[in-house]
Write a protein that binds this DNA or RNA. Sequence first.
DNA 1: CCCATTTGACCCGG
DNA 2: CCGGGTCAAATGGG
Length: 313
Amino acid sequence: MALIATGATPAASVASELIAQGRESAAALEALLQGASLPPAHGGLQSLAAEILRCCDRALAVMRGDEAESSTGGGAAAACGVKRKTAAAQATRKRRVGGGGAAPATRVETARTSEDGFLWRKYGQKDIKNSKHPRLYFRCSYKEDDGCKATRQVQQSEDDPSLYVITYFGEHTCSGKTAAAAVDDVDDDDAASSRHFVINFGSATASSGAPPLLYSSDSNGGVLSETTLSSSPPQSMRSPEQDREDSGVMMTKEEPVDSRPASAGSSPADDASCASLAMEPLIDNLNWDKFGDSSFVDIDEFMNFGEIDLFQI
DNA sequence: CCCATTTGACCCGG
DNA sequence: CCGGGTCAAATGGG
């Protein structure tokens, strides 16, 4: 349950973390490029970003010792299947979001709320045993109708009040609509169909053969779901103010409760598994939209990559 | 009036 | 029985 899956050596952990950060950046870059509605000429840039992303992924996989799996694209699914047992064991609590499927989890620590581009609706809050701060539960806001099973948990870090631990579960099955819709909102739905892009990791992925979204790992079970953040689409709707502070996370209120004795304990609580994902049609394309209107710069505001660490659980 | 959040109850697995 | 996750009625805001 160490924070970092790569428990091997400290150095490895650090390296892994760094790579993860690099991956984040690459993903962000890709997202930006994607969203920038650049002239076709820039397609190369995207591929490049995708390539970097891929390399990071592979590096991470290798460090974890999963290289075999990661390299085997379709294998990912297979690998997952193989690991299924492990996964199943861990994913004891199926009841989670998807009910049926175990969802891969990605844990992210961020200084600020990370705007991942999706709209989340809070559906619960719970005080956790050894945490001073409550854990907030969110699910993809966009219509359960659409059946999007993505959820995420947000909790303020114990030690560092300025950090928030955000754990993502599940995939955004709302692919077609959610993200796009959200983005569209900016203008309104009227524009609906016309303006959303679907990121095509395909090429990158294809080459590696692995679905960009998940990687199976070993017992520790981490599955690295696609980077929640990086990929995050833009979508800034709602009130500007909200976007930033409250942004997806909104700790607006619970935050206040900051001082309280607690021993920490990094609880690995999250259960994740790759299992089901593999089975289902890989959703390799969340819809990303342009970061739109605001311009890339915004991304900085939304997420502070420097402060984000991605962990596999 | 609509809808997201709030908050306590309920449910499930360990 | 406990801890954690989700549901759902009530509430507040826009």
